[in-house]
Amino acid sequence: MKVFISADIEGTAGIADWDEALKERRDYSEFRELMTAEVVAACKGARAAGAKEILIKDAHQTARNLIVSKLPDYASIVRGWSGHPHVMMFGLDRSFDAALFTGYHAKAGTEANPLAHTMNDRISRLIINDEVVSEFTVNAYTSALLGVPPVFLSGDRGICDDARALVPAIGTVAVSEGFGRAALSISPARAIAEIREGVEKALSRDLTACRLDLPKHFDVEIEFNNPTDAYRASWYPGTEHPRERTLRFVSDDYFEVLRALRFLTV
């Protein structure tokens, strides 16, 4: 079995403030360790379920967060941003049997995580086919594009609920819940244990139950907080600018959607 892990940090147990998630901030080092511990737990669960190869994509901010010396010897890691449209899923291909997501967070505009956002803090909402979506939705569709089922996610309760709405059979571990600018979290020790157990259970089932069918058409709207950001990005080929803060891109090809998002959201 060959497994891919996309690892973010804002859905790591205990996180409640940007000081804990950004590399240049004072509290980052502690939560970098906790992010790493949750990824290692996912690796151990995958190994127990029979995984022979594990590829991790460090998928937060600089993409250089995970403490590589703590990763197991059977795992490989992609660090840094290649510039490829797969972004947080870079390295995934059709040879993988399953995709896992750790440390994922609620979408922009929700209260499920004090750090809720989608891609960056300049975007107020990302909408695909009239539904407000999260980074998980974008990345799960990337997985589906490559024929790889998304089988497990850990993060805040909001993103776990969204993941199950999109992929009903997906295994989830909710480690926290947002209340305004506060977060109620289980302990890191419990999160680590539940992620390990959850990943092993998710990978020990019939993985085809988590296969996700891509929509046949994509109508994408990006709502920015600032109209100047929308204007600057509106020159991407094929992009419409229907309202001051909004861009629209339409395609039947999801890779073209990913390519557009790669340039429209930077």
Rank of each mutant, 00 (worst) to 15 (best):
M1T: 12
I5H: 08
S6Q: 06
A7W: 01
I9P: 07
G11H: 05
T12V: 15
I15P: 02
E20L: 06
K23H: 13
D27V: 05
S29I: 10
F31L: 08
T36F: 04
E38D: 02
A48I: 04
I54Q: 02
I54C: 01
I56N: 06
Q61E: 15
Q61K: 13
N65K: 09
D73F: 09
R79T: 15
H84C: 09
H86Q: 13
M89P: 01
L92I: 07
D97Q: 10
A98D: 03
G109W: 05
E111T: 13
H117D: 08
V132Y: 00
V132C: 10
E135N: 11
F136R: 02
T137K: 08
L145P: 02
G147I: 07
P149V: 08
G158T: 05
I159K: 03
A163G: 06
G171P: 00
T172F: 03
T172A: 02
S176C: 04
S176W: 00
G178S: 02
G178F: 05
G180Q: 03
I186K: 11
P188N: 04
P188D: 02
A189F: 09
R190D: 14
E194L: 15
R196D: 08
G198D: 00
R205M: 12
R211F: 06
K216T: 15
F218W: 13
E221Q: 15
N225L: 14
N226K: 12
P227W: 01
T246W: 09
L247I: 10
R248M: 07
F255Q: 11
E256T: 13
E256C: 03
V257D: 07
R262D: 13
T265E: 06
